[in-house]
């Protein structure tokens, strides 16, 4: 069965994501796609967490944790990309 905190997480994703979309489009951050992808994977994980209380608990639990791994990989990709571009700028300045 689902927990209350999981429902709260999902509701926040549902209500805050549309507001965030406008801000994401407005900001100029290099390689923001990685972080956007990571956030979407987190949101998907919340959906799986709630759904596993109703259907296919094993499969959706695995999918939830798989989404965590994807989040890690995407955030790592974004951080690596930012780190490289920052290093490249420092090298150019020298």
């Amino acid at each position: 069965m689902y927990q209350e905190s999981e429902i709260v997480d999902l509701l926040m994703v549902i209500f805050l994501t549309p507001i965030m979309v406008a801000n994401v489009r407005a900001i100029h951050v290099p390689d923001k796609r990685w972080f956007v992808g990571g956030y979407l994977a987190v949101a998907l994980g919340y959906v799986f967490t709630v759904l596993e209380g109703f259907i296919a608990p094993e499969a959706l639990n695995t999918a939830e944790h798989l989404s965590h791994a994807v989040v890690g990989a995407l955030f790592f990709g974004g951080a690596l990309s930012m780190f490289r571009s920052a290093r490249a700028r420092v090298s150019e300045q020298r």
């Binding site: 965590h68 791994a69 989040v71 890690g72 790592f76 951080a79 930012m82």
Partner: peptide
């Protein structure tokens, strides 16, 4: 999957901090 997430996220944290 959890271990993979932990390793990637820790690495992302270190890279971002640097």
């Amino acid at each position: 999957f959890d271990a993979t997430a932990l390793v990637f996220l820790a690495a992302a944290f270190v890279l971002l901090a640097a």
